[in-house]
């Protein structure tokens, strides 16, 4: 199945996302902030990146911007996991190059449906 990078500073959220995706047969790597995610993305080709917006060290939006600047990640789907219901945050994420978003709270079924949707 797909190689997915899950980025969230919350261990429980990341755990839930990773567990759910692994259960669906995906290979999941985890990073706790944008900076670590970038390091991992450089060393490996992910098919999908799921990232929280608010994180210490490097937030999700800055991370998307950096990823999109990398040739290998120009067209890779990146979904923001966000509790922000504010449209500005979504727009900021979009402007940085995010593919779309998944609004927290989401349950495992919603997550899988969205991932399936993105990966086709």
């Amino acid at each position: 199945m797909a190689k997915i990078l899950a980025v969230d500073d919350s261990v429980s959220m990341r755990g839930m996302v990773a567990f759910t995706l692994r259960g669906a047969g995906h290979e999941v790597a985890e990073a706790e902030n944008g900076q670590l995610a970038l390091d991992m993305a450089r060393g490996s080709a992910f098919d999908l990146v799921l990232a929280d917006v608010n994180m210490p060290v490097m937030d999700g939006i800055a991370m998307v911007r950096e990823l999109r600047a990398m040739d290998a990640y120009k067209g890779v789907p990146i979904l923001m996991l966000t509790t922000e219901s504010h449209t500005e945050k979504k727009m900021e994420g979009k402007a940085a190059g995010a593919t779309g978003w998944l609004v927290k709270p989401f349950d495992p079924e919603q997550l899988l449906a969205t991932v399936k949707r993105v990966l086709g």
Binding site: A45, D71, A72, Y73, K74, G75, V76
Partner: peptide, 11 residues
Amino acid sequence: LPADCRLAAQA
């Protein structure tokens, strides 16, 4: 054409 023909391989 290569097996993986996606954006990253297109240059």
